[in-house]
Amino acid sequence: MHLLCWFVQPMTAGCQGVEASTPEIYGLTLASSNKELLAYFSLKNGCPPMIYQVLATGVPVKYTFELELKVHRFLLDKTLARQRVVRILTFDNLKGEYRIGFGLNEPRVISVKTLEEAEKIGFEINDVPVIALSKLPAQRTNYVLRVRARVEKMESSLPFKGLMEIFSSWGLETRWYEIRFTY
């Protein structure tokens, strides 16, 4: 695996003044394998007190990381690829352990005793194949890879689930974090 890129522009514009407890994407990096463009990033503050409170009640919390690769055009950017990475975080009150799932239909589950361990396993996203290199038009500039994270409750035993979605303010969504590169 060698590094292809090269103009990594830290996209911090618009993030100033963001509180420390606000979830944010950091370490957004691109690399390439022989065939694919790979993305690496982490979620920081992915479990603020609000989410932690929900998690402590035993409700599974789904973290969805959305990746979009776009190419800049005059009027409307063209989306070349979309990817989605899912992590499901659960806390078992009886056994006092956190479980990290790697997708809705993925049987792989890791149990850890502390939240820090769970965050480390769940929020470090590595080797996400964005697009096959063969599909990237050569000699083009202004590629943009953007990522955002969305946190939502998976299921709940509460009544009036629909209305609770409106009146319970515990869901989160980060802004889009972008990285521009040429290839």
Partner: peptide
């Protein structure tokens, strides 16, 4: 399950009332 339901209800006490 009972404990978690209770914690959820308590956490969302306000929204439940409003709902």
């Amino acid at each position: 399950s009972g404990y978690e339901d209770y914690r959820q209800l308590k956490l969302f006490q306000g929204p439940i009332k409003v709902t």
